[in-house]
Design a protein around this nucleic acid. Structure first.
Length: 864
RNA sequence: GGGCGAUUAGCUCAGCGGUAGAGCACUCGCCUUACAAGCGAGGGGUCACUGGUUCGAACCCAGUAUCGCCCA
């Protein structure tokens, strides 16, 4: 035999790097846009260039790798396209921190040199995650790796900006936007995270005597910029004040009291202060009542006016203003702590400041409608469907998207301003008029990652890749960025590609959590580092653990114990295949027709067929937990625990039966390894090469179910055999017989039982010797029509046996009572479907037979 | 405040109208010549609560409670 020797333990580190490098060198993951095969495309959600592989990526990537590996095996021209996004704020922050160590700010370098410095950083330390993806085994097409700041992708950004601008879908306006006073840039709504924070609610009396009114606020310092007080028009308490003015404390200014429908008369005093320059709702009230907007803070959140408060940070100004008001006796009530929702910058956690400023926006109306319609009419399917509702809630009520960022790292807004205030949007091949200056801002990173499915394939050029691989087959991502990113890609893809959506299916998975279902967080100390797991348990075990918990759209709990379990599974497959190889398993000849095979062979092949069908269905539904579970059970509980043990008996017989068994073993392991390959690529590659002598399982055909091997009779026969063996094992265990201890036994009635063909197998698995001359059985039990008379080689533990039998008897009696009860119920008999009645009858007669058998055995037991 | 989801064995989760399941953990016995990262056997659940529909409910409906998530 020329098969290589395999060690008794699978060591992932010995094979992973070698296999991965071989796959890449052999171009296994390269997709050919000129191929005749049908396409299967996934674009990788681009990780952040500053990022590193965390366990959430590991889940996301494991799913995509499983899908693309299977697609490749099924004969699709399969593209899994990798790359990164430039992460404007995050990357700029990283490089600015580096500069700060040198005592420099980006302003010291100037824009051009700063951007050069960022590129330099990217070349040296960016994109660590790409190397980490190789450790996980990601079968991505490295030849097509893209970065959102690449020339081609930048061209795509400029092109779509120009088109949207020319279509009137991009505009510039002065609005209240979310502003980060630390990052010094505008943020979109989705870059703001809300949390319930402790603050204060202070009630302040404006005006005096009859002309006074009390307002409540969590942001007392903004009162410096108040330009009105608003009440509900129907609120009789304040009707006499509407249209009058009250004095604004500390400032001496007089401000009007206005009536506005949007004031909630139930909240607080029913009167609200109006600060149009520092609150989005107040801004709207201001617009409706033509109020002035008074900006009282600068870009860093420092108060810019009003004598004693000037120069104070907003959080210093707040108590200072309250103290000053208190001194004047204007504080009517104070509630502290007061829990309310506060927005934070998703990048640096600084409290966001609503700020009035001039920014660029995408008018999302028609784009969002198209994105909603594409899902409504089924051009794109969201999976699982329950999550589609969230998608609709978002797209159907989407606010205009603020896309300008006051950063240097990113795609610069392609708009130029003339000396007389002219505004020109410049396309990719156009030159701005002489003397014009470009807008200093850059675009939101999501603006370029929104183009990912088209820009990575070459858009705006009409490339072969775009024609071949667009629309992509499926997008795999977490439900948490359904509206961050998916919606943007839908809007841009539909707009740029004439209504062709970027994905046929969006498959959403959940978040990875710890073993108690808790969110992973650094402060909680429960974060799993996938690279640590890859080193300790192997990439396959890491992937399998994640996939095994991946039910569509729901969170995945994982723990080290479960990773160890997955490692054990890989090792089990390793050793089972090793057994097969040591026993001459082969795929060198075709599988014999069913008629030439034993019931045992036919059973495992029938089960294999069923499992293939089952697994295919689960894959189509993105049921990775079920795919994993089905294969785990088939491999371990059926192939290893039963078929391999029974095959030993067949091989021991020698001759043609042994040869046929070797073919069945080879065939079963060949198929099993292929089925597992998308989940656990490394161990299956190594074993499959050893089993078949071929180059790579990555290009092996995906197994197909063969109806010729369906065999309910063989299946029933083996189930009966398993029942017999399990029952006798249970008896042995109850009697304290050690597993390896051989005892003599007579199997009576074997010939007429359903397991007549399996006496040798039963004796082998049960360690039962043929009775010798002086055979005197000490116990008997009857299972599947076979009466097993055993010489237990010692005193029988009658008490244990009685206990066992009485337990079984009680269960059988309960079963009988239930079945009889149902059958005696006229309602049940007339209304229940026929098959249920038949089943219940069968249960009843089975229970009767069991009771009779057990009672006979009890009666036969010697008295204690 | 609005919406969504969950509540099943110690933990994490399947099951979604007809005998309560899995993995891990647990107990007992085993180095039985593929595997101790293993083998064999076993214990463990009034399916959150209260009503209703049905011949029959973990599953469908209504309400309650608790938890989680998203949005405002």
């Amino acid at each position: 035999m020329t098969k290589p020797e395999l060690p008794t333990q699978y060591t992932p580190a010995d094979v992973e790097t070698r296999s991965y490098e071989q796959w890449v060198a052999d171009g296994r993951f390269h997709a050919d846009s000129g191929s005749d095969k049908a396409p299967y495309t996934i674009v990788l959600p681009p990780p952040n260039v500053t990022g590193s592989l965390h366990v959430g990526h590991a889940l996301d990537h494991s799913i995509q790798d499983a899908l693309t590996r299977r697609a490749r095996m099924r004969g699709f021209e399969t593209l899994w396209l990798p790359g990164m996004d430039h992460a404007g704020i995050a990357t700029q922050n990283v490089v600015e921190r580096e500069l700060a160590k040198e005592g420099l700010s980006r302003h010291d370098l100037g824009r051009e040199r700063f951007v050069e410095r960022v590129w330099q950083w990217k070349a040296e330390s960016g994109g660590k995650i790409l190397g980490q993806m190789k450790r996980l085994g990601d079968g991505v097409d490295w030849d097509r790796e893209r970065f959102t700041m690449d020339e081609g992708l930048s061209r795509a950004v400029q092109t779509i900006f120009k088109r949207l601008f020319d279509d009137g879908l991009i505009y510039r306006a002065e609005r209240i936007i979310n502003w980060c006073p630390r990052c010094l840039t505008a943020l979109s709504d989705i870059e703001v995270e809300h949390s319930e924070d402790e603050g204060e609610l202070v009630s302040i009396r404006y005006g005096d005597g009859d002309a006074s009114i009390v307002v409540a606020t969590t942001r007392a310092e903004t009162m410096l910029g108040d330009t009105a007080v608003a009440v509900h028009p129907g609120d009789e308490r304040y009707a006499h004040l509407v249209g009058t003015e009250v004095e604004l404390p500390l400032t001496g200014r007089r401000i009007p009291v206005v009536a506005d429908e949007h004031v909630d008369p139930e909240f607080g005093t029913g009167a609200v202060k109006v600060t149009p320059a520092h609150d989005p709702n107040d801004f709207e009230i201001g617009r409706r009542h033509d109020l002035p907007s008074l900006t009282v803070m600068d870009e860093r959140g420092v108060v810019t006016a009003h004598g004693p408060f000037e120069g104070l940070d907003r959080f210093e100004a707040r108590p200072a203003v309250v103290a000053a008001l208190r001194e004047q006796g204007r504080i009517v009530a104070e509630k502290r702590p007061y829990l309310h929702s506060v927005g934070h910058c998703s990048r640096c956690k600084t409290v966001v400041e609503p700020r009035l400023s001039l920014q660029w926006f995408v008018s999302v109306g028609p784009l969002a409608k198209a994105a909603g319609d594409a899902v409504r009419d089924g051009r794109t399917v969201i999976h699982p469907p329950e999550l589609a509702k969230r998608y609709f809630d978002w797209v159907d009520d989407m606010h205009d998207w603020c896309i300008s960022r006051q950063l240097w790292w990113g795609h610069r807004i392609p708009v130029w301003y003339g000396p007389a205030g002219e505004v020109v949007c410049v396309g990719p091949d156009e030159e701005p008029p002489a003397g014009y200056t470009q807008d200093p801002d850059v675009l939101d990173t999501w603006f370029s990652s929104g183009l990912w499915p088209i820009s990575t394939l070459g858009w705006p050029e009409d490339t072969e890749a775009l024609r071949k691989f667009y629309p992509t087959t499926v997008l795999v991502t977490g439900y948490d960025i359904l509206f961050f990113w998916v919606v943007r890609m839908m809007m841009f893809g539909l707009y740029a590609m004439d209504g062709q959506p970027p994905f046929r299916t969006v498959a959403l998975h959940g978040m990875v959590r710890d073993q108690f279902g808790k969110k992973m967080s650094k402060s909680f100390g429960n974060v799993v580092d996938p690279l640590d797991w890859i080193e300790r348990f192997g990439a396959d075990a890491t992937r399998f653990t994640l996939l095994r918990g991946a039910n569509p759209g729901s969170d995945v709990a994982i723990s080290e114990e479960w990773a160890a379990g997955s490692r054990n599974f890989c090792n089990k497959i390793w050793n089972a295949t090793r057994f097969a190889l040591l026993n001459g398993a082969t795929v060198a000849a075709p599988l014999p027709p069913p008629a030439e095979l034993t019931a045992t062979d036919r059973w495992i092949l029938a089960r294999l067929n069923e499992v293939i069908t089952e697994v295919d269905g689960y894959f189509e539904d993105f049921e990775f937990a079920k795919v994993s579970d089905a294969l785990y059970h088939f491999a371990w509980d059926e192939v290893c625990d039963w078929y391999v043990e029974l095959a030993k008996v067949q091989i021991a017989r020698g001759g043609e039966e042994a040869d046929r068994t070797r073919l069945v073993l080879g065939h079963v392991f060949d198929a099993l390894l292929r089925l597992l390959h998308p989940l656990t690529p490394f161990v299956t590659e190594e074993l499959w090469r050893a089993l078949t002598g071929e180059d790579s399982i990555t290009v092996a055909a995906w197994p197909g179910a063969d109806p010729a091997y369906a065999d309910p009779a063989a299946t029933a026969e083996i189930l009966a055999l398993q029942d017999l063996i399990t029952e006798v094992r249970r008896f042995r265990s109850d009697q304290g017989l050690k597993p390896g201890q051989r005892v003599a036994a007579r199997l009576v009635g074997m010939e007429s039982s359903p397991v007549s063909a399996h006496e040798e197998a039963a004796r082998s698995l049960l360690r039962l010797d043929a009775p010798s001359g002086a055979f005197s059985p000490t116990a008997t039990l009857t299972v599947q029509g076979v009466t097993v008379e055993i010489d237990t080689a010692g005193a029988i533990d009658v008490a244990a046996e009685r206990k066992r039998l009485e337990k079984d008897l009680a269960a059988a009696r309960k079963e009988l009572a239930q079945a009889t009860g149902k059958l005696a119920n006229a309602q049940f008999m007339s209304k229940a479907p026929e098959d249920v009645v038949v089943k219940t009858r069968a249960r009843e007669s089975q229970a009767r037979a069991d009771i009779e058998r057990i009672e006979a055995q009890l009666a036969a037991l010697p008295a204690t």
